[in-house]
Nucleic acid binder design. Structure first.
Lengths: 227, 227, 227, 227
DNA sequence: GATGAATGAGCGTTCATTCAT
DNA sequence: AATGAATGAACGCTCATTCAT
């Protein structure tokens, strides 16, 4: 399998870039340092000029790859969800029991992210911070529907689809497989944020991650089909 | 009671404004039209200059009331949650049974908003759209902790507190009253958004609001205390 | 003499104010706090709004007294030179010998300023800092000639006149009594500044004030008349 | 020697600009017209926008070269003193006698400036007016010490150093070589200003420049070493 | 293909001031 | 006489982008 993973690539919707950033050293530098910079200064203050400063390239070079900073955010967000989907499959495909599978999925989605050495040009921990703090800005936009038509959010939707399928596998009679799936995916981002910044209104202190919350949730919401 | 509500005011943290917008006609105009404008063009494109254009006042006059557009967003968000809390109390205080109470609370929080004639300077429907589309930007910021120290998010936190208390009232043994409360409050915003823009990954179509989803959730998650 | 000084007032050209600031409590507050504020934040950043904030008065009230901040600077500068002239007379009028007189004058002009308890609404030390750091901005202006015609700089010119007279008293044949007078007055401000901020190009370190420099200067430049 | 001067450049501290204005046509245009504009309207009213208007470039282009108008002032001031130092060396290096040397130096520093055809992008006469009227504003600032640490005033300090050395050469026993040097340099600016705007308190009328005043001063203050 | 230079447009902000009370 | 509210105009600056090389 290691062999299989050698040429591993998380594929991202082609409309999101003008030139594939994975196709050149400069492109990878843009990704790597862009992620770190957004994590550091926040998406609002992030500009191609500043990124250009960091990588010692003129900002115009970055425009060769991405139309604007918004698309850059959608790109890395998309990469993240593609990566998560990949992890999800890897972690669950050997599990037979639906409930165990779903529990595993929750872990993949809600546990703090660890560095993935397979992708050297990406600091997954920094990226995860961005997903928590900035990713919603990629769709909370007047252009959502337009962007959606371009397929910008396919990675996220495919992931939600996968999770909802796992939910249906456990309880085909459950009425809200999609709502529950997005609750787990987006909700866990929110839980991470709240536990970090609004400690008075969270239960996820002392190292108890949202995982436990969601596992308890599915344990009670979903009835096993054979029951 | 109508009499009692005559002098009704939703109070907002004083740090959020330089001059109380409810204290003058201009102030109310700013609120009213600011909400409508943000709803129309989105928070990114919203500027005090444009708002000034709409209300035929110089932008500098708006700066007398709010330090910047970010604080304006926090203000109206804060007003919204204060208003929601008020509705919550009004709708639930006569209900004895904890479970009914919580169900009512879910309706207040997750049902589409209706115009509230008691507050003439606020278009609650437009405001609700803003809450769905923009409010997260009020805290997804590098300055969250600083803002939080100033008490900018108290309204939201108080509401979450209230809901978590209702949850505890139903099932004092439940481990995640806060996480569940924020899941209901924030999650329902997200459900509204998803059902509007990503119809392929939602169950809330055909007029079925997130309410049903959350009612089903608490019905299964919380065990009655006396059981 | 103390009796004589009871109703002491340094008079300032009437064109410099709209309403005499010494005629009301508010006026004195403006002077007192204006001086302190300029000393603190510098003349560039000083505004009537900020001053209004400090004295808890609306900025428009300050406009009752002074047309603009520039005139305020000219006013306090003018007060300073009037005050210096008064000190000069007081300190020298009993001295008979011209050379001693001039030496005394140099001390009055070049020695660090001390608080003068006779003028309660003025912090002379802060004012002296302003004279060193900001006063030249009162005349280095495109409007100098216009302002000069209004008599804005009379106090300074009268002082220069007095000193030049003392110089002539010592050596009526000296060719540059005026140039020497302004050299002493303005030069000593410059010496103070340089010794504070550019220590590498000064001789006035270790507590040696510019006084010594100027005393040495007149000792060598001026020949006694009777010689 | 003319050959030698072909590639002449007055070097200015690198921290003062973002991009070397001498490295491009636009940069030189900025310098040339900036000087003329400040001379015309004064530094207070001078803005990059207005300068942009004059050179038919957007102000943002000017920001590529200078961080702000303050740094622009420091730059041209610095250029001026660098140029003066260069003239000083050129004019004095062949003179053997210390006193003659110093007298020559005074002429370079205190005589009215003449156009220097070697620097086509600079109107030295306009620049000299700026030095007289505005240059003190480059250091009379709350940020002096910070700016000084950045080396913004090195050109001036180096010049003062040179002059003080000449003074010491004439009279190594003289106690105030630095104070005298800055008195000559800064004082002569002041004398020019006073003679132009406050004619009642000057001796430098009728074409008699401050030169005579300072030559007389050193003649009397400094004792020849061998005496 | 990558870069450097230049720019138009507009944002957020503040200032100095006026008007009405 | 003092104040509070409101404003017009401009500043300083940066962003996102294009063009020429």
């Amino acid at each position: 399998m290691d062999e299989l993973l050698k040429n591993l690539r998380v594929s991202v919707n082609e409309n999101l870039y003008l030139k594939d950033p994975e196709s050149s050293e400069l492109g990878k530098k843009i990704i790597r340092n862009g992620i770190i910079l957004i994590d550091e200064i926040g998406f609002e203050d992030f500009t191609f000029r500043k990124l250009g400063g960091v990588i010692k390239s003129n900002e115009s070079s970055i425009y060769r790859y991405f139309e604007n900073k918004h698309n850059f955010l959608v790109y890395i967000t998309s990469w993240f969800w593609g990566w998560k989907e990949f992890q999800l499959l890897l972690a669950t495909n050997s599990i037979k029991d639906g409930r165990n599978k779903l529990n595993k999925a929750i872990e993949v989605l809600a546990l703090p992210v660890k560095e993935d050495i397979r992708f050297k040009h990406i600091d997954e921990v920094a990226l995860n911070n961005i997903i928590i703090n900035e990713s919603s800005k990629s769709y909370l936009t007047k252009k959502v529907d337009e962007d959606n038509d371009q397929g910008y959010f396919m990675a996220f939707k495919r992931l939600a689809e996968r999770v909802s399928e796992m939910i249906k596998e456990v309880d085909s009679g459950y009425k809200f497989p999609y709502s529950l799936a997005t609750t787990i995916i987006n909700g866990s981002l929110n839980q991470h944020f709240v536990s970090k910044h609004f400690p008075t209104i969270t239960d996820c202190k002392d190292g108890i991650a949202p995982t436990v919350f969601y596992k308890n949730m599915i344990a009670n919401l979903l009835k096993a089909d054979h029951e």
